[in-house]
Structures are given as structure tokens and as C-alpha cells.
């Protein structure tokens, strides 16, 4: 781990637009390969369509680039989900959400169109239920219930104590189940 003054200096250089070194490029590529899907999905579940989620994911890794020097492997996932949640909030505030359907995944669309259609339908149903939750409950539900982050990682991403995460998750599960039950009954009647 770098001393604090070197860490601060590295941040300043990175923030000033200094080109990444070879090691930094490798580190960023590794980070991206490992975590870009979860970041993208968190953005999607936060209410962004696929195109906006693509753009937002770039913002998330841009934040990570500035903090490469003090990112540790065991906290990478929790760290990246933090700016993902914040970017989603910011984009929801500043852009009108587009209701256009997302772009289908390239490799899968050719092979199993029926499965993907069903998957798209299920994701749409899920998003419609998540949309009815408050931001606080939806964020913790997505991070822990869907993406499987630990309580500690979720607390780090959301910037709240672990106890708060636990209580929010309990309320989120209750609310989600009630909303899903109501949606299922409405669809069957």
C-alpha cells in the first residue's frame, strides 16, 4: 500500500488527466473485465435502459480510474457499486428516462430468441416492481438480493452502516413481495 502522500499525489496526477501508465492500463482492463457486467446490471436495475446503462458504466469506471491506487481486490466490487448507484441517481435526475427497449445481447440473440424473449419479459416485470420501491429500498435490494453483495460491500457502496443496510433489506424484501403478489393477482384476474 502506498504512503498517504504518494496516494494523494497519484490522485492529483490522475485527476489532471495524466495519461495512464502501462500498469494502470492493465489494472483498469482487469477491473473492467471482472466487474463491468455487475456494474451494468446495477445501473439497469436502477432504472436506466441499456443505452444509458452503457454510458453510465463508463462513468463508473472513470471514477475508478481516479482511485486505482487505493483500490483493493477485496473491496473492488463494493467500491464500484457505489458510483454505479450514484451515477444512476444523477442520471435519473438530469435525463428523462427513455422507455425504448434495450439492445439485445449480440451473441445470444441469434441462438435462442424464444428464451431471450421470455427473459426480457421477466426483466421488464421485475423492473416494473422495482420501480415502485423507494430509491433506498431498491438500491439495497438490487445490490444484495439480486447481485449478491455482502452486507459489508453494500454498506460501502451506499455509504451507510451495515445495520442500516440490514434493516433496509428487510423492509425491501417485504415491500417487494407485497408488490409482486399484487402484480401477480392483477395479471391473473
Amino acid at each position: 500500500m502506498l504512503p498517504i502522500f504518494l496516494t494523494v499525489a497519484a490522485r492529483k496526477l490522475e485527476a489532471a488527466g495524466t495519461p495512464l501508465s502501462g500498469a494502470q492500463r492493465d489494472r483498469l482492463q482487469s477491473l473492467y473485465a471482472l466487474h463491468h457486467q455487475i456494474v451494468w446490471r446495477v445501473l439497469r436495475r436502477s432504472g436506466l435502459d441499456e443505452a444509458h446503462a452503457d454510458d453510465a458504466a463508463q462513468q463508473v469506471f472513470l471514477v475508478a480510474m481516479k482511485r486505482l491506487s487505493d483500490l483493493r481486490p477485496e473491496t473492488e466490487r463494493g467500491f464500484l457499486c457505489g458510483p454505479a448507484v450514484m451515477v444512476a441517481r444523477k442520471l435519473r435526475q438530469t435525463r428523462a428516462k427513455e422507455s425504448l427497449p434495450g439492445v439485445l445481447p449480440d451473441g445470444e440473440s441469434r441462438d435462442r430468441p424464444d428464451v431471450l424473449a421470455e427473459q426480457r419479459l421477466n426483466v421488464a416485470i421485475l423492473d416494473s416492481v422495482l420501480k415502485q420501491l423507494t430509491d433506498e429500498l431498491r438500491e439495497v435490494f438490487v445490490l444484495q438480493e439480486i447481485e449478491g453483495l455482502s452486507k459489508r460491500e453494500a454498506a460501502m457502496a451506499l455509504g451507510v452502516p451495515e445495520g442500516t443496510v440490514a434493516s433496509r433489506l428487510r423492509r425491501a424484501r417485504e415491500s417487494f413481495d407485497e408488490l409482486l403478489t399484487a402484480a401477480t393477482k392483477g395479471a391473473s384476474s
Binding site: 452503457d54 439492445v103 449480440d106 421470455e118 426483466v123 439480486i146
Partner: peptide, 18 residues
Amino acid sequence: LLDAARAERQSETAAKRG
């Protein structure tokens, strides 16, 4: 529903472009 969400993937093209 949760499994469908977990299976969702960003397209490789979009990911590489990013």
C-alpha cells in the same frame, strides 16, 4: 424474475466500446 435479472448481460460490443 431474479434469475432473469442476474442473467442479463451488457453486449460485448457495448462493453468493448466503453
